[in-house]
């Protein structure tokens, strides 16, 4: 039993940072500001999974539950603010492309 859960535990320990890398890649390579936020969301999913796994493999899932719920609430607020930013940026520049946004700053 313990061996099996050790393998499972390592699977989670590998997956969560991989999601972080995917998110960083998505943010770093795109020029579209909405896609950046999507990259951020992918990273957050990685953290959610790791937190839940931390509770599960520690035998204390009830304790991480409020942490995950708090995290989701915070995430929604951040996302709403970034949506407000995006809409204001698009109103000013009529583009989602970071190159155009930087160019017009000039």
């Amino acid at each position: 039993m313990s061996f099996e859960s050790l393998i499972l535990f390592k699977c989670y320990l590998i997956t969560a940072p991989v999601l972080f890398v995917i998110g960083i890649y998505a943010i770093g390579t795109t020029r579209n500001i909405i896609a950046m936020i999507i990259g951020l969301e992918i990273m957050t999913k990685g953290v959610t999974v790791l937190l839940a796994a931390a509770g599960y493999f520690n035998g204390k899932p009830q304790i991480v539950e409020p942490l995950i719920i708090t995290m989701i609430v915070v995430e929604v607020v951040i996302l709403t603010i970034s949506a407000a930013y995006i809409i204001n940026i698009v109103k000013k520049h009529d583009s989602l492309d970071t190159h155009n946004i930087n160019k017009l700053k000039g």
Binding site: T48, P61, V64, I68, I69
Partner: peptide
């Protein structure tokens, strides 16, 4: 999250 025994968080994740 359901599989990890955190059902409330799972419901939050789904709805939010």
């Amino acid at each position: 999250l359901f599989a990890l025994k955190t059902p409330l968080a799972a419901i939050f994740e789904l709805s939010v």
